[in-house]
Design a protein around this nucleic acid. Structure first.
Length: 273
DNA sequence: CATCAGGCGAGAC
DNA sequence: GTCTCGCCTGAT
């Protein structure tokens, strides 16, 4: 059990922010607790105000979760840099001030955001769950919780396309099959993406079948932590058209643009219009 | 019944 | 380079 006191951290906001599809609010006796799987580990987190309780050892927290939840980044400092005359952005950041940009697994984000295209969050979660149950390694946590790791590139490359269809992936089945095979073949070296800047990494990711500009930006932001990536989905485009007819001020916000994108997305999805 | 979900690839021009 | 169109599937 690890107890942390932290500002600008809300496990429920992170859970609902839509960057992770393997994080859920638990029900029944564990209501108020969030469960998640990442990097082959199962974790439960609960929070009371600024006090956060991670149900794991200190070693596991240090090795996995501190980095995963981006705990060393000063989000209050980022929010304080927002132009106060931009009332919309100020309100969006205020509303979602507990969101953090997670540091998630690169391969998992590639597949997850291919699945996400032209899809709704509920069905995305179902697709990912089926992929994990059918192609991922079965594991048991220290507390006896059964969970499934995210499938490896090799496991998905070996899947039959008709079996992928049976995971409710629809036309995305072929994209996943093709992308898994190109990673196994080494067409794109995932490890090499880490040392590239945002633009270069994005260009490399665009080679993968089913990865376009929006999905590539999500991978850059949620896995590679290129925080200058600014994914444009239907929600963001709607807000940009309504609130920023002359363009979003990327020059002003630079490497914080991607973080602000999350506040805008979350605000548009869950908050006020 | 039509439309829409955190788009993308293929083909036309 | 830019534009249009079809696409799995479930929710509304």
């Amino acid at each position: 059990m690890v107890q942390i006191t932290k500002d600008c951290f809300s496990i429920s906001q992170i859970c609902m922010s839509g960057q992770c599809f393997r994080m859920d609010a638990l029900e029944g006796e564990k209501a108020g607790t969030v469960g998640l799987v990442a990097f082959g580990n199962y974790l439960e987190v609960r929070q009371n105000g600024n006090e956060i309780c991670f149900d794991c050892t200190q070693d596991e927290y240090d090795a996995v979760w501190n980095g995963y939840f981006d705990m060393e980044t000063d989000y209050a400092g980022i929010i304080s840099c927002i132009d106060s005359s931009d009332t919309y952005l100020t309100a969006a950041a205020q509303y979602g001030n507990g969101i953090r940009i997670l540091n998630q697994d690169l391969w998992e984000m590639i597949i997850s955001f291919i699945v996400s295209q032209q899809n709704n969050i509920k069905r995305i979660r179902k697709c990912i769950r089926l992929l994990c149950e059918r192609y991922g390694e079965k594991k048991i946590s220290a507390d006896g919780i059964v969970f499934f790791d995210f499938p490896t590139p090799r496991a998905l490359a070996a899947a039959r396309i008709e079996d992928l269809y049976a995971c409710n992936l629809g036309y995305r089945s072929k994209y996943i099959y093709e992308t898994a095979n190109s990673i196994v073949r080494g067409d794109v070296n995932l490890q090499s993406l880490w040392q590239m800047d945002y633009e270069t990494a994005k260009k490399e990711l665009l080679q993968l079948c089913g990865v376009g500009t929006k999905v590539a930006d999500c991978i850059c932001l949620f896995a590679l932590h290129k925080t200058d990536a600014f994914p444009r989905d239907t929600h963001i485009n709607k807000v940009l058209a309504a609130r920023y007819p002359d363009g979003f001020p990327f020059g002003k916000y630079g490497k914080n643009s991607g973080i602000l994108q999350q506040y805008i997305f979350y605000y548009d999805l869950n908050g006020m219009k």
